[in-house]
Design a protein around this nucleic acid. Structure first.
Lengths: 333, 333
DNA sequence: CTGCGCTTTGTAATCGATTACATGCTAGCT
DNA sequence: AGCTAGCATGTAATCGATTACAAAGCGCAG
């Protein structure tokens, strides 16, 4: 390669990575040789020397969930032009136990980490911190309590409150809620927002109207069965995810109930299908693409800073209520 | 590190990557040192020496499409235990022009490649081939004509024919089709299967009943508008993707039409929401997880083979019709 | 004319692991 | 005892780029 261009390897390297320091003529000669041979730089060698990996890892709780795909697209969109590859790890896969995850997190594998999973084992992060192999981490959507890490999130409690107030405005006084999975930060934030809004509006808080769920379609359907089994039913239900809302409505529909006639439903996320579901879903819109993009931007900035250990930043993106057909005025029967 | 364990770097390396060749005692000493220091091997250096990258690249036409997420999960599921990181590239992102893609494909970036996108620029692959930097490639779902590459696919034409025959069995004689995007291999395979089945069954093939689409929700809705505008409407429509089927039904529903009363609809893919849509979607089920897993298996095998340049393999996975509520007997009006 | 400083290029060390080759040691055989 | 086979380990080269340092070439000012 260097021989072909008639210069030393050092000059070739300079021509490629710092073109401004080599003379016009040599630069041309090198580029010419590059074109002729179809030479491609060896990233592994470059990264070894530069002591970086050129990759960022994204931890996704469940790749199968369409909620995440747009966030990934947002991340990719920012990371690729900045020269970072995006490595994806599904934290809920069976092989992804602590040991495995650990090797991913370690800085010999990636320059930085975006986690969409707020329930990474605490021990893991402490181990990382201890071995000072901790790469910069940014949480997105979900996060870990403690304020140690930067995060890009939405105001979940406010979103939940918006949903409840919307239902109240429509005349609903008996409002239920389908929770997310136990122990999840989003679950508790949305639950808290829901309770706060109910209280503020002077509405009843009835334990039987709070259904278990885990964000999935299936769990929404199960919540619907629980709703059907109630003596006194809420006239409106706020689901902590659109998927659950779809499952809820779907199951009711199979039993001959109709939304919003028999019960109003509000979801959370505004996934693509929400506006095309039947009835179209009233929901809390999250800027999924922006969440990914912001998280990537933040992370890359942090990687650039070197070991500056900047204080944790918290970015809160706006949510908004999108009123569609799944919620309507309360119907006397 | 080596000093801590009281041995040479060579021995440390052997203890870690070929434990069987070092003595019991030294092995223990090394592992002990590893545990105490929290040492993590530097993948970059290892990969440089081994002349591999430890990563496989997956090219996805559109990360935002939930159809792909499960395939990715399948890939990840196989790749991670085999020691490969999964790098994801969205080929439809604006920054992903030929040059960018090229650097991804090149073997200094990844040991192999799975493409879910059958419309990679031909020039790209030729360039790769020419510069003999071509890493093993496996196509999944989509593929490129020419039989040069291994692929893991389903029998799209057969799937389409199953859909048409199903509608015929229900009494439909006027059957339409919503196509996928122009120039896509899936579009043409499914179109071909549709036409072949129509012909075989002695049904009319009416150009106005073939609607343009691009697999998206939105394009399904547009097809519905086209359907509404027809003088003589088909009583059943087979959509080349579930997303389009959902968009189609949704748009009709907004106009006061109901499925399957006014028109039967069959989709393709069996995405998660299909069984929870209202009406639940009759569709052609693809084993998405298996497609990903098989593709990864095939690719990794190929990578292991070294430059053996094995002949292209074609794996065809089974599809099946899942009859649900969106298709029903033809209703006289 | 000499010398300083700037630009451009080459030499060689370096990143951190792997591995070919050499060496030392032990066991087993004659 | 002497010799060989084979195991365990150390030495040093290697992967392919980057970069500190040195040196060469050139222009310009004193």
């Amino acid at each position: 390669m260097a021989r072909l261009a008639g210069v030393s390897t050092a000059t070739v390297s300079r021509a490629i990575s710092t073109p401004s320091v080599v003379s016009e003529a040599t630069r041309e000669a090198v580029f010419d040789a590059v074109r002729r041979t179809g030479y491609q730089i060896n990233m592994t060698a470059r990264n070894l020397r530069r002591r970086r990996t050129g990759a960022i890892v994204v931890m996704v709780p469940d790749l199968g969930n369409p909620f995440f795909s747009r966030i990934l697209a947002g991340i990719e969109h920012v990371a690729a032009p900045a020269g970072f590859s995006v490595l994806i790890v599904d934290t809920k896969q069976p092989h992804a136990e602590e040991g495995q995850l650990f090797t991913y997190l370690h800085n010999t594998r990636a320059d930085g980490l975006i986690s969409l999973d707020g329930s990474l084992p605490r021990a893991l992060l402490e181990r990382l911190d201890g071995s000072n192999g901790l790469p910069p981490i940014v949480f997105a959507c979900e996060w870990m309590a403690g304020g140690l890490f930067s995060k890009v999130v939405i105001d979940n409690a406010a979103g939940a409150a918006m949903a409840v107030r919307h239902l109240h405005r429509l005349g609903h006084r008996r409002i239920g809620h389908v929770r997310g999975p136990q122990g999840n930060v989003l679950t508790s934030a949305r639950l808290k927002g829901t309770r706060a809004a109910l209280k503020e509006l002077g509405l009843r808080i009835v334990p039987e109207w709070f259904f278990d769920g885990d964000f999935s379609l299936q769990s929404g359907a199960e919540a619907a069965r629980a709703w059907l089994a109630l003596q006194e039913r809420p006239t409106a239900v706020f689901c902590a995810s659109d998927q659950m809302a779809c499952g809820f409505i779907s199951e009711l529909s199979m039993e001959g109930y109709s939304v919003p006639r028999d019960v109003s439903v509000v979801g959370f996320d505004d996934i693509d299908i929400a506006r095309r579901f039947i009835p179209s879903l009233t929901t809390i819109h999250q800027p999924r693409n922006d969440i990914g993009a912001e998280a990537a931007k933040l992370l890359i900035e942090r990687i650039g800073n070197g070991k500056a250990a900047a204080p944790a930043v918290e970015e809160v993106l706006p949510v908004e209520l999108v009123a569609r057909e799944s919620s309507g005025p309360v119907v006397p029967h």
